[in-house]
Design a protein around this nucleic acid. Structure first.
Length: 120
DNA sequence: AAGATGACTAACT
DNA sequence: AAGTTAGCCATCT
């Protein structure tokens, strides 16, 4: 290789990795912040995922609503318009809520794919 | 410059 | 079962 990148990763690098992971979450699937962090190579840094999403340029059109917390809840204050918005987007693609909680197992990408291939 | 704040979470009580 | 704590750490006051 001619010019290997030996520089340590910057926060901007990390944000971009996070954005890349989120952009690949299929419709009707959800991942929690910690999982996105791990997939982005940043274990233990769930908070950074939230930060990255808050900073994401609108131009990227990320499916940010497919990221919820580890309990399967929307992390915005329940009375906020952002909470309402996220819930609408999720329900519009078929994600079901049971008492404001999503069944993370049922809506994990592997589960959703499984149902697509083999049926319920 | 230091303390508070979060789109977080696992591990305690 | 619900509340607290410790770790997370870039950003915002």
């Amino acid at each position: 290789m001619t010019s290997a990148n030996t520089n340590p990763p910057t926060d901007d690098d990390r944000y971009e990795r996070i954005w890349a992971i989120v952009s690949d979450i299929p419709a009707a699937c959800v991942l929690n912040y910690g999982e996105v962090a791990r997939l982005a190579g940043l274990p233990g840094r769930a908070r950074m995922v939230g930060r990255a999403l808050a900073r994401a340029p609108a131009r990227l059109k990320l499916p940010w609503h497919r990221v919820v917390n580890s309990r399967g809840e929307i992390s915005f204050r329940p009375d906020s318009s952002r909470h309402q918005r996220q819930r609408e987007l999720l329900e519009a693609e078929g994600v079901e809520f049971e008492n404001n909680i999503i069944d993370l197992e049922r809506h994990a990408p592997s589960s959703v794919l499984d149902r697509m291939l083999w049926g319920p």
